[in-house]
Amino acid sequence: MASMSEQPPHTPAEEPAWKRRAVERSTQAAKRRAEERGERFLDAARAVVTEKGTTDFTVQEVVDRSRQSLRSFYQHFDGKHELLLALFEDAMATTAGRLRAAAARESGPLERLRCVVRELFESGRPGAVGARRPLFADFAPALLVSRPREMAVAVAPVVAVVAELTAELERTGALGGSVDALRAARLTVRTVLFAARPESADEGEPLTADEVWDFCAHGLLRG
């Protein structure tokens, strides 16, 4: 007969169910707290960006506004760039929902795609009272050039909307040649976001949503 010292150790599968439940609750609670702290940093950053009208802020400004610690900030983000990227990803997800809702109000596939391209362009332009949207006007163009992979991830929700509409339009036979809906959507979104950036003095009159749509459409439509 085996002695007590010779008994095999308990495996994780033999742990009482209450222990597993306790660990799960603890993990879930920690996850919720981390998400809440992260959201507070994002809310603080949005407020700072809105007030300053620029993405030229410091991490300390965001930390102070959030009423949390610098240590906590770096537990959630590795620096200002990752914070800006999180803000932009969040903005793109919200924008995708808004674009989808706007498209649903249109009557046909061409009208829906035109609506989305125009709305996306306008989302990056100054507001009616001149308020800037620096995440679109400043951060997005810079991200397009310096971090294309990060940009691709951030704009994926918007690209998905445009790809669906492009595929829908393709089924009507209105597209010229052989068009890959996803690749066309990626190119369209990048073009629109870059076109929405503030013009320099030597670029002349600001672009309009109609001009941007015409440019995108003529690369897709027949005749």
Rank of each mutant, 00 (worst) to 15 (best):
P16G: 14
A167Q: 13
A131M: 10
R171L: 15
L175F: 10
F73Q: 00
T11M: 14
Q7A: 13
R21C: 03
G97S: 03
A156S: 08
R222I: 08
L175E: 00
E24S: 15
V161W: 02
A201T: 14
R105E: 14
S5T: 11
D64T: 12
V62I: 04
T50A: 14
Q68D: 03
L99Y: 07
V179Y: 06
G173S: 02
L110T: 05
T94A: 11
V155P: 10
D214L: 15
M92R: 03
R65S: 10
S107E: 14
E6S: 10
R100V: 00
R118Y: 00
F57Y: 11
T54R: 03
V48H: 06
L110H: 04
R100S: 15
E24N: 08
E15V: 13
G219R: 15
V23F: 12
A163F: 02
P206K: 00
E164L: 11
F88L: 09
A163E: 14
A137D: 02
R112N: 06
R46V: 09
G127P: 06
R133H: 11
F88R: 00
V48C: 08
G173K: 01
D78Q: 13
G127R: 07
S69V: 07
D202C: 09
E89C: 01
S66Q: 02
E211L: 08
R67V: 09
L169N: 03
P16M: 14
R20L: 01
G127Y: 04
R25N: 08
A102I: 00
M151C: 14
T27V: 13
L207Y: 01
A156K: 07
T95Y: 01
A140Q: 07
P12T: 02
T50Q: 10
R20C: 03
A160S: 10
H76D: 14
Q75N: 13
T191G: 15
A209S: 10
G219N: 09
F73P: 12
H81V: 13
Q60V: 02
G124E: 04
T27S: 08
V192D: 09
M1Q: 02
T58G: 00
A201N: 11
P109F: 00
A104E: 13
G79I: 10
V63E: 09
A167C: 00
V49P: 12
E170S: 14
V179D: 05
L83K: 09
L135M: 08
A196H: 11
R21K: 10
D78R: 13
E205M: 13
A174H: 12
A185F: 04
V159D: 06
E6M: 14
P16S: 15
H76L: 13
A45M: 03
L42D: 05
L144R: 00
Q60W: 05
L42N: 00
G53L: 01
E24F: 09
C216E: 06
V49Y: 01
Q60G: 03
V129G: 07
P8V: 08
